[in-house]
Amino acid sequence: MTKITYVEFNGTEHEVDLTNGQTLMTGAVSHMVPGIEGDCGGLCACATCHVYIPEAWEAVCGTPGELERNILDFAFDAKNSSRLSCQIEVTDELEGLRVMMPERQY
């Protein structure tokens, strides 16, 4: 189990325990964390699972691949720290990660 905190744009925090191997997107959806939609179910095709990863965690979370970068074009308020949460797998190294959410997904 890995502890992840999802922070909504309005500041509301959701601390959840996720089993390793799932993605940050499925973790949020299964724990009813609002603000991460995951319309395409993790196919990297919808950009509705957009999140910001704090700089300190960038190394652990990795960098987006080409497809993800392209799809991020559609994300609202994308920044350098933007990632699609369906492309990040939960591992022990993510213990304590705080995932920040954008103002909207659509």
């Binding site: 319309d39 395409c40 196919l43 095709a45 919808c46 509705t48 799809i71 074009d73 559609f74």
Partner: peptide, 22 residues
């Protein structure tokens, strides 16, 4: 998103998954 280049891209290589969700 740069609309024109995406339209072109989809026209050249149709991607039904993306077209469905974006």
């Amino acid at each position: 998103v740069d609309v024109v280049s995406w339209l072109k891209r989809w026209a050249e290589e149709p991607n039904p998954e993306q077209l469905r969700y974006l």
